[in-house]
């Protein structure tokens, strides 16, 4: 199915452009966060900007554009949105657990403190006085 961009109504073009720019700008913000944040556990959160509203903005812009141009609802972009929403937490959680496993097995002190349950949460304080050796 092909559409002509000049046949899109003006309101749909402006709305779709706003959503497209929102999505691309949020993806760029996620990339800047991926560069600038200090530790891996902080960096793990940055790409979710691109996978939540970055992809959502682009997909909404695409839905508006193709629906307005072809005068019938075009909804197959929702498939990509559902897929990205379902798979991103799975991948990032597996990556975070693998990193936690590696850091614990190497005794790396840059990892978050252990959680021992509510009754022992204060018995094992995180070692805040240890210096950062940059074990990377």
């Amino acid at each position: 199915m092909r559409i002509d961009l000049a046949a899109v109504p003006l309101w749909a073009a402006i709305l779709a452009s706003a959503f497209i720019l929102l999505g691309a700008g949020l993806s760029l913000l996620g990339a800047i966060g991926l560069i600038r944040l200090k530790s891996f556990y902080e960096r793990l959160h940055a790409p979710t900007l691109a996978t939540s509203w970055g992809a959502g903005g682009m997909l909404l812009g695409s839905v508006i554009l193709f629906t307005a141009a072809s005068a019938r609802p075009v909804l197959h972009e929702i498939l990509i949105g559902v897929f990205v929403t379902v798979t991103t937490p799975v991948t990032l959680m597996m990556l975070g657990r693998a990193t936690l496993y590696r850091d614990r097995s190497e005794g790396n002190i840059k990892m978050p403190p252990d959680y021992h349950g509510p009754e022992r949460a204060h018995a094992v304080p995180p070692d805040a006085s240890a210096t950062d050796k940059g074990n990377s």
Binding site: L34, A46, P47, A50, I80
Partner: peptide
């Protein structure tokens, strides 16, 4: 993590 982000960005680029 950067490779996964590159996949997402390539997908948005294709969109």
């Amino acid at each position: 993590l950067a490779l996964d982000f590159l996949y997402v960005l390539a997908m948005l680029q294709l969109l």
